[in-house]
Design a protein around this nucleic acid. Structure first.
Lengths: 274, 274
DNA sequence: CGTTAGATGGAAAATATGTTCCATTTTCGA
DNA sequence: TCGAAAATGGAACATATTTTCCATCTAACG
């Protein structure tokens, strides 16, 4: 048997599985079949479990991994684990390393932020709850007036929403806190307020959301994580968790969500008018 | 703290997380946030990895599991591994699923915008000119005062820049055109103005850039394409071309560029002060 | 039918991982 | 400001899991 280098992707592994399957002795063949049929189990099982599933002894499964070119089961498992949860668990660590290695040339920084944005987008695709999205859009398109509240970090999202809704002819009010004026008395029953805030949550935004609720307006929250204070105010929560870089957070995912929201509301309103 | 029985489903666990989050000490709170934001990691990570992700020591994470009612990490992980069968698909599969949910369903729209954002980011990585970036950063970090001008679509980028520079202690003035007041007489020699505009180019932004030039300020342009009117005003041009979907343009790439710019300037200024 | 190369299973060794305990630090209230 | 209670981090300990090794078994070939 040749000394093969380990596959570097699941696809590569599957190819190799196909190549080898015929030339494999009985027990190893069983392993191959089992892995091919249950690739999802590999990431979360022990050798013992995999072996039992394939109907072989652990040591046989071990040999199977080695025949595929891995040093052992652990290495093979790593492949499956990484492809399952895209590699941003150690994202913070990576940034620290980057810092230490002094490679903070602007281009390297940019590359990191690009990567952070990409991961955030992928994560959004994986975690968005389509029903929550539908519900939020329904609420917004039924609104008399859409209030948009997002301050500090979230202000740029709020500004973009205001711009885009305007372009879609959706009546909108951007609460920009200019001159420390807040417009909390503008909320009416039948209005919807889109409140955007991320940890550390801006008190004014949460305040305004409370005020809106007292006035009988519905609230759509765009926020991160389960522990957001907005979560207690409304069932309409869109969760976006962005990869952050120290104090700075990519807003790629949030903005993509924002624009999707606007376009969908625009489409929904056209429907209604027909 | 009550002796609680272990949650038997992920939903139950999330509820409990919400209940407890506020009453948890700092480190355990970090664990809660991390788990809430990355539930998919739990199935495939070790305590050490989870702890590192949450920024705590393994023993703290351990205590966190126990506070939730589990005997330890292993028991909690078992819960996540069992529910793993529904197999959260990878990014590509998931995106297809979102798209399949009907031509202009919200989820399908979101999928398109996510994809557009990703393309923009990739494109930015490929096309950015590192020398232009370096030059822009040098100019900005030498500035007495950084003016930021971006209106309409570009306003959200401008707002983000203003926020981020502020956090970095870089003296900044955001030209927001509130009340149609423009502050064209604020430009001074030694200042830098960051002008942001995309086709169709906003006249006010270009105007202000001209005014800044007359006043002897340097201009850094963030714009698209070769035909931008800002290109005649300054050699310091950062080009970002965003993929668009329908009438709407993703801002993912522009914002990543913006944040990289800010952090690099922050780093450069610290250098200077040393 | 005997020999041999290869395959197999079991058990021991090595390693990784989870868990507990306790000294030190921090926080909070008197 | 001090003292008590809680929280924290580190290290020791316990357990689980992986990996290796080798005696035994099986099948193929002369």
């Amino acid at each position: 048997m040749d000394v093969l280098s380990a596959p570097t992707s699941i696809e590569e592994l599957q190819d190799r599985l196909l190549d080898l399957a015929d030339s494999l002795p009985k027990r190893l063949r069983q392993c191959a079949d089992y892995v091919a049929a249950n690739p999802d189990r590999v990431a979360v099982s022990t050798v013992a479990e995999m072996a039992a599933g394939a109907g072989v002894k652990p040591s046989a499964f071990m040999r199977f991994c080695q025949v595929l070119g891995f040093s052992g089961f652990s290495q093979m498992q790593r492949l499956f684990r990484e492809s399952y949860s895209q590699n941003w668990p150690d994202y913070t660590t990576r940034l620290e390393k980057l810092r230490e290695s002094g490679a903070d040339s602007p281009s390297a920084l940019l590359a990191e932020f690009i990567e952070a944005g990409r991961l955030s987008l992928e994560n959004l695709a994986k975690t968005i709850d389509p029903r929550a999205l539908d519900a939020a859009i329904k609420a917004i398109s039924e609104a008399q007036l859409v209030h948009i509240v997002g301050l500090r970090r979230a202000f740029s999202v709020a500004a973009y929403l205001a711009y885009a809704f305007e372009k879609m002819n959706v009546p909108t009010m951007l609460h920009d806190a200019v001159g420390k004026l807040d417009s909390r008395h503008a909320f009416r029953e039948g209005d919807v307020i889109i409140a955007i805030t991320f940890a550390p949550y801006t008190a004014e935004t949460v305040d305004l959301a409370h005020a809106a609720r007292r006035a009988g307006a519905r609230i759509v929250a765009i926020t991160d994580s389960l522990t957001s204070p907005l979560r207690q105010l409304t069932p309409l929560v869109l969760t976006v968790s962005e990869a952050d870089f120290g104090a700075f957070r990519s807003l790629s995912a949030t903005l993509s969500l924002a624009v999707a929201l606007v376009v969908a509301v625009g489409a929904a309103e056209r429907e209604v008018k027909k």
